[in-house]
Design a protein around this nucleic acid. Structure first.
Length: 893
RNA sequence: GGGCGAAUAGCUCAGCUGGUUCAGAGCGCCUGCCUUACACGCAGGAAGUCGGGGGUUCGAAUCCCUCUUCGCCCACCA
């Protein structure tokens, strides 16, 4: 060992050095041989700054990856960043705004160059932050979705789908963000329930013979109404079908049409039809050949198509004015509060406007079919299972994907238009088109870029070199696990399955593990805008990366969210920090005691520790260790990361540190023989504990593991083998016997505490009614008992004394601690009384249960047997206590 | 409007196939300890009608129904 370890673990002092060492040792790269295990990291946005969501997502992936790496798999965890079209463009536009300019001032080319500059500068930030929390992806393979090769894959995919007829251009109602000035996909328009109003407007019949009342939540769109629709079977309106209305405010004649899409039960049963501003109305308009009047500009101001007094007004101002005019004209019938879902831009939260425009779409139904089949046939699995229903539901109701964005930052749509009007050829091409292939005329490329997700849905293969047939692609596709937040199930996960099926003929991963969301104590999602976030790097600084990771993992039960209190990060992260410190000190103790002669526990060596040299405590801790190995391994295999952490925690802290280390001290100090055996067992079990914890707490486990004497300097716990289960270590006998020793020690401690025996004061103890294993076990561990319970004299057999504290162990052994005058007889009597009362209740209940013929007849024999044993044991305990009580001369309680 | 999840100690949560982990952990709280690995610690303790009600069962925190409260996903009733 180079230098003594400080008594308090200081993560900051070791983490960055260890990380650098891992990088130098290249431990994150997949092994040249072995079964691959592949996880595609959800690429963070290139402008992103690490938040708790990333922290959780990547910690979970890192746990799985480190686990599989230790299990000998050739692990590829592939990192990358997403160019994040809208988000990144917004960031740079804001920077420009600070200089008082817009992207239009500098033009497309200069703007894109500007974004590149920004991205080159800030791009590595989030990846570096992942390093700070200990993530171990293969950095050598890091990609960026705008890299040349990934861009090539994007074009390849676009052209293939275009040629297959699965990409088309069309004039439809899409979701439009008036702030970002671009179309959005359905998924990008987040529906939020919003309190709005429902206005009832009267539209007079053209001949003045009355009116029809329509209800609307968006009065401003009435300026673009081109009809009123009613249900064909609606008796109320049947006579009016085909007649004309005089549209108020704009003074235009519009027809009354009949259409099945109208729900007679809603509102008045008559609906105003605005084909340019509502998808349903658009369909109605098409069916009835109605004109479309686009009443808004891209910025959601009123266009030149409306009366002059409204032109240029913001949509909400226009809404107000329209309502006012209706009211003034006596045509506002009423107004009701109305709660309904309103779409919001997922990037800037602006209310999206349904807008008629020319966009590119992907026809999704053919792509969804195999992706849905993969799930139905069980090839694609979700953890937790119920998440699969959401996936299936989305696939079943799939709608075409609007992929064009009116942005400058992104993959430009690889489509060129011949500028000669009589040719007007449209060509989609893998390479840039310079002139029209038909007429040789000049061409211009489509101005729009593709949805960011159009590049990320290809990542499972594009990041491996597709469309080239690379070695990586052959080896690492398909992958294994996808770890993700529920938010991007449809944006990313579902679409990756579709693209995998379409272009690779196979699903890209077989398990989708969906973890929860990080929320505050009011169950609000942590977010920058709410100001309720916790900066993971802050936590790393204060408590260490391992404490951060431990907290995240311990809180991540399958299918549940992680709740953290941003106002009290100590409460959240101290347990992890404390545990790390515990590990550190256990390590300090064990390692500093490993310097004496040691012998291996197993193996081919001559001087291997023989089984008969193991003490009861040795066999016990080895059995507990074995149990921990099995529990942690199974838990990780089942994605129960929190249980894996809890199991390892219990083993290291409660078993190894609290009991075993205490037990072996005399042997280590040479007060008792067998120091070499204790050292061997302690070293091995601690080594196993470190390895079990390494996926969750990589830094501290590596630091301690490296310090073991004789460890080769270049060895890393990251690539050391995962502890295997060894059934020979299972030892029910040792577990039961040492368990009795623990019980006895606790019983005496309890009595001492109860009666306020001074800490340094030793006591005597008498044992009666000893169970079959008890005597032998207590003799074996006499030293342990006397040290840990401060017992000076352990007597086997009833004590003649009357006054003292007592307890009964689970095997019926009676423990009596004579306390002479120190004892408060009355207090002990009342304690006894309470205990007897409790037992009597248990016994009565149990007798009733066993007396019930239904139970004895119907319950399995083993269960009945167990219940009988319980009753016998309670009766025995009751007897012992009653005897004690009589001895003490207690009155009737 | 349809679908799904959650409710367990003061707080944050485990508790998987009904019965040996069955009422648990950590934090907080109370008592006592600077015991030569660790006070970020050690030992002991108090604390819960397992959201309400009903049912199935020999037996329910666990299964079913229902109600309440929170949360999520989907949905073109304007």
């Amino acid at each position: 060992m180079s230098e003594p370890l400080a008594p308090q673990y200081n993560p900051a002092a070791i983490e960055s050095d260890l990380y650098r060492w891992w990088m130098e040792r290249d431990v994150f790269a997949p092994a040249a041989r072995g079964t691959p295990y592949v996880i595609m990291m959800p690429p963070p946005n290139v402008t992103a700054v690490l938040h708790m969501g990333h922290g959780m997502n990547n910690t979970i992936q890192d746990v799985l990856v480190r686990f599989e790496r230790m299990r000998g798999k050739a692990v590829l965890w592939l990192p990358g960043t997403d160019h994040a079209g809208i988000a990144t463009q917004n960031v740079v536009e804001r920077l420009l705004a600070k200089e008082g300019i817009t992207r239009f001032d500098i033009g497309r080319e200069a703007f894109v160059e500007r974004v590149w500059e920004h991205v080159r500068e800030t791009g590595p930030t989030i990846l570096d932050q992942l390093k700070a929390i200990g993530c171990s992806p293969d950095w050598e393979r890091t990609y960026f979705t705008l890299d040349d090769d990934l861009s090539r894959a994007v074009r390849e995919v676009f052209v293939r789908l275009y040629e297959k007829g699965l990409i088309y251009r069309g004039h439809y109602i899409i979701n439009w963000c008036p702030r970002c000035l671009t179309a959005l996909s359905n998924e990008e328009a987040e529906k939020e329930d919003t309190d709005g109003k429902l206005w009832y407007f009267r539209y007079p019949l053209a001949d003045g013979s009355g009116h029809v009342t329509v209800a609307t939540t968006r009065p401003e769109t009435m300026l673009g109404d081109t009809a009123v629709a009613v249900h064909p079977d609606d008796e109320r309106y049947r006579a009016l079908i085909g007649r004309e209305l005089r549209l108020p405010v704009v003074d235009r004649l519009i027809p009354i049409v009949a259409d099945d899409a109208v729900d007679p039960a809603f509102g008045t049963g008559a609906v105003k039809v605005t084909p340019a501003h509502d998808p349903t109305d658009f369909d109605i308009g098409k069916r009835h050949s109605l004109p479309s009047i686009d009443v808004m500009t891209p910025e959601a101001r009123m266009s030149l198509a409306v009366p002059e007094r409204f032109q240029g007004l913001d949509r909400y101002e226009a809404r107000k004015r329209v309502v006012e005019e209706f009211e003034a004209a006596g045509l506002l019938e009423k107004m009701e509060p109305h709660r309904h879902a309103v779409g919001h831009c997922y990037r800037c939260d602006t209310v999206v406007e349904p807008r008629l425009s020319e966009q590119w779409f992907v026809k999704m139904a053919p792509l969804a079919r195999p992706a849905l089949a993969a799930y139905r046939e069980g090839r694609l699995r979700f953890v937790p299972e119920r998440r699969g229903d959401e996936y299936a539901q989305w696939m079943e109701n799939i709608r075409d994907w609007c992929i064009s964005r009116q942005l400058w930052w992104g993959h430009r749509i690889p489509v060129w238009y011949c500028e000669r009007e009589r040719c007007a050829r449209i060509v989609a091409s893998r390479t840039d088109v310079l002139s029209c292939p038909d007429c040789g005329g000049p061409v211009r490329q489509d101005e729009d870029v593709l949805d960011t997700w159009f590049s990320s849905w290809l990542v499972p293969f594009s990041s491996l070199g597709w469309p080239e047939k690379t070695a990586d692609l052959a080896r690492f596709y398909p992958g294994d696990t996808l770890v993700t937040a529920p938010e991007i199930l449809f944006f990313w996960v579902s679409r990756m399955v579709m693209s995998g099926c379409e272009f690779m003929g196979d699903i890209p991963f077989e398990t989708v593990y969906m973890h929860g969301t990080v929320r505050d104590t009011q169950y609000r999602k942590m977010s920058k805008s709410l100001g309720n976030g916790i900066d993971p790097l802050d936590v790393v600084e204060q408590f260490g990366a391992d404490a951060l990771r431990y907290t995240i993992v311990a809180g991540s039960a399958v299918g549940t969210d992680v709740i953290l209190d941003p106002n009290d990060i100590i409460t959240s992260f101290a347990p992890g920090r404390n545990f790390a410190n515990k590990l550190w000190n256990a390590g300090r103790f064990i390692l500093s005691n490993l310097e004496g002669p040691t012998r291996p526990l197993a193996g081919a060596a001559k001087n291997v520790v023989r089984r008969d040299e193991l003490s009861l405590a040795d066999r016990w801790i080895l059995a507990r260790c074995e149990a921990a190995v099995v529990e942690v391994t199974e838990a990780l295999e089942r994605f129960r990361l929190n249980e894996a952490a809890a199991s390892a925690y219990r083993f290291v802290w409660s078993d190894l540190a609290d009991w075993y280390i205490e037990q072996i001290k005399p042997r280590l100090y040479g007060d008792q023989p067998g120091g070499d055996v204790a050292r061997a067992v302690a070293a091995q079990t601690f080594d196993v504990g470190l390895r079990l914890l390494h996926p969750v707490m990589p830094f501290i486990t590596e630091a301690l593991w490296k310090k073991f004497p004789g460890r080769p300097a270049e060895a890393s716990i990251s690539t050391s083998p995962w502890p295997g289960s060894d059934r020979r270590a299972q030892d029910a006998d040792a577990v039961r016997r040492f368990g009795l020793v623990q019980e006895l020690v606790s019983a005496v401690r309890q009595i001492r505490a109860e009666y306020g025996v001074a800490p340094g004061q030793t006591v005597r103890a008498a044992l009666g009614n000893l169970g079959p294993d008890a005597r032998e076990s207590f003799i074996t561990e006499l030293g342990t008992i006397s040290r840990l319970a401060k017992v000076s004299d352990l007597q086997f057999g009833e004590s003649g004394e009357r006054v003292g504290g007592h307890a009964v162990l689970t095997d019926g052994t009676g423990v009596f601690v004579p306390l002479g005058d120190a004892i408060d007889v009355e207090r002990e009597c009342s304690r006894l009384g309470a205990e007897i009362e409790r037992l009597l209740q248990l016994i009565t209940g149990q007798e009733k249960k066993l007396g019930n013929r239904q139970f004895t007849a119907k319950a399995p024999a083993a269960v009945v047997e167990r219940e009988r044993d319980k009753l016998a044991s309670w009766r025995e305990q009751h007897e012992v206590l009653a005897r004690k009580r009589a001895l003490l001369g207690c009155g009737n309680a």
